[in-house]
Structures are given as structure tokens and as C-alpha cells.
Amino acid sequence: MEPYSYQTIDLSYLKELSMGDTGYELEMAEKFVELVSDEMIQLAAYLEGGDIEALKRLVHKMRSTIYLMGLRPKLIIAIEAIEYEKLAAEQLKFHVDAILTVCRKAKEEVLLFLDKTR
């Protein structure tokens, strides 16, 4: 059977870490779903409240969550723009939305992965 092909997540890094240990993959996938859900809520709240410094810190912190599911290539431009550039409100919203969109899709796919693997 061909491995399921995901559109957003890339499981290579998780597989490299797990070295075939499915239990570990499930544990980390569950953790991803839990953490990314909280982080998305926080991210939207910081944007809404205009707390830019907290937003930047959160985006930096989210790198670990994002990298776990191989989302770096899709999000590195948005992450670095938020962390390093002085963005106008509209640009900031654009990049935060990009992160939220990718993370939302990634969460759905990780849930699917959990479903298929359990």
C-alpha cells in the first residue's frame, strides 16, 4: 500500500526522529495537535489585541511546533518577516494569516495521520 500523501505536512523529520517507532510518532502528533491549537488561538488574540512583541515571541516559539511537521518551507518567509521586519499592520496580518492557514490545514492532516496510524 502506498503511504498516504499529505498536502501540507511533511512527516520526514518526525520519521527521522522516530526511527520507525510508531508510538513516538503518535505521541508527538498528539502533542502537535494540542500545542498548535493553543498557539493559533494565542496568535490570533495577540494580533487582535495589537500586542506585537508578544506576537513576535510566540511566532519564534512556534518554530518548534512548525518544524516538527515539516512546515518550515511553507512558513519561513512569514516567520522571518514577523520576527525581523518592521511590518505595517496589514503586512503583519497577512503573514499571521498565512501561519494560521497553514497550521489549520496541518492540524487537520495530523488528525488524519493519527486516525490512519492508530
Binding site: 526522529l17 502533542k31 502537535f32 518548534s64 516538527l68
Partner: peptide, 14 residues
């Protein structure tokens, strides 16, 4: 030492 749970877990694994 890391403030992010996934980062800590990754290092524990490594």
C-alpha cells in the same frame, strides 16, 4: 533547557 515542550521532547528523543 528549552521553553517549548516539543523542543524539549525532540532533544529527549535525540
Amino acid at each position: 533547557v528549552d521553553d517549548h515542550e516539543i523542543a524539549r521532547d525532540t532533544l529527549i528523543r535525540l
